[in-house]
């Protein structure tokens, strides 16, 4: 399955009458790792929900691979910041979920789920319930569950936002590592500038009036780009920038 391109064209996104962002234009190239940063309430999560098909734009269009997104699809997996694992299912049974939906027979999906968990370093935790796992482990299960569905695009909403610095760094390495074997377009939302520059091929800063900065990240990012991102995030949001 080839990575999927995503696109927002003059998109107005919001809930009910309340538009979070209006007339947003954004192109996500197939296979790239795009990091979206921006102050709270500028529509980062809303944009991801629209790409996931959980939210219809009230104006403009949101497309995947050139086709209008009309609803959720296993092609586009969403990894949530808060705990989206089903608490009554063990780690393995959570990872089995996309496989069961796809109709993979029981034994095959058990084996495959166990493989994915081993891939994210949780071979020993297959039988544990989410509440028996640490925050970092739960996010690894979520990542394994998303990847088990073999998505062509991975939408990640501050997936490591609630983790401590050390766990976070380990998760960032793991993510890049796993993506090397399972290529997908990634849209990754974060508040953290360093995380953005470390992970992204490209970084976009969303402001109240659409895209405030759109820059490719070089292999060895210099302080100039960091300064530009910080400037785009604006002094007012300084407290959110680590």
């Amino acid at each position: 399955m080839s990575p999927l391109s995503l696109r927002a064209e003059r998109a107005t996104l919001g809930y009910g009458d309340h538009a979070v962002c209006t007339g947003l234009d954004l192109d996500v190239r197939a296979g790239e790792f795009l990091v979206v940063a921006g102050p709270s309430g500028c529509g980062k999560s809303t944009l991801l929900r629209a790409f996931a098909g959980l939210l219809r734009p009230s104006g403009g269009a949101v497309t995947a691979g050139g086709e209008t997104i009309t609803g959720p699809s296993p092609d586009r997996a969403l990894v949530f910041q808060d705990d989206a694992l089903l608490p009554w299912r063990s780690a393995r049974r959570n990872v089995e979920l996309p496989l069961a939906i796809r109709g993979v027979p029981r034994n095959a999906r058990r084996a495959e789920a166990a493989e994915w968990l081993a891939r994210v370093g949780l071979a020993d935790a297959v039988r544990r319930l989410p509440r028996q796992l640490s925050g970092g482990m739960r996010q690894r299960v979520q990542l394994a569950r998303a990847l088990a569905g073999r998505p062509r695009a991975l939408l990640m909403d501050e997936p490591f936002g609630a983790l401590d610095a050390q766990t976070r760094a380990a998760m960032q390495r793991l993510l890049l590592d796993v993506l090397a074997d399972a290529p997908a377009t990634v849209v990754f939302v974060t508040h953290d500038v360093d995380e953005a520059l470390l992970l992204g091929d490209r970084v976009v800063v969303l402001g109240r009036r659409g895209v405030a900065l759109d820059a490719d990240v070089p292999a060895a990012p210099d302080d100039t780009l960091r300064a530009r991102v910080l400037a785009a995030l604006g002094a007012r949001t300084g407290e959110e920038v680590r």
Partner: peptide, 15 residues
């Protein structure tokens, strides 16, 4: 969030 997660994994209403 649980229903959203299942829907983005491809699950329908019955699932």
């Amino acid at each position: 969030v649980w229903a959203d997660a299942v829907r983005t994994l491809g699950g329908g209403r019955a699932r």
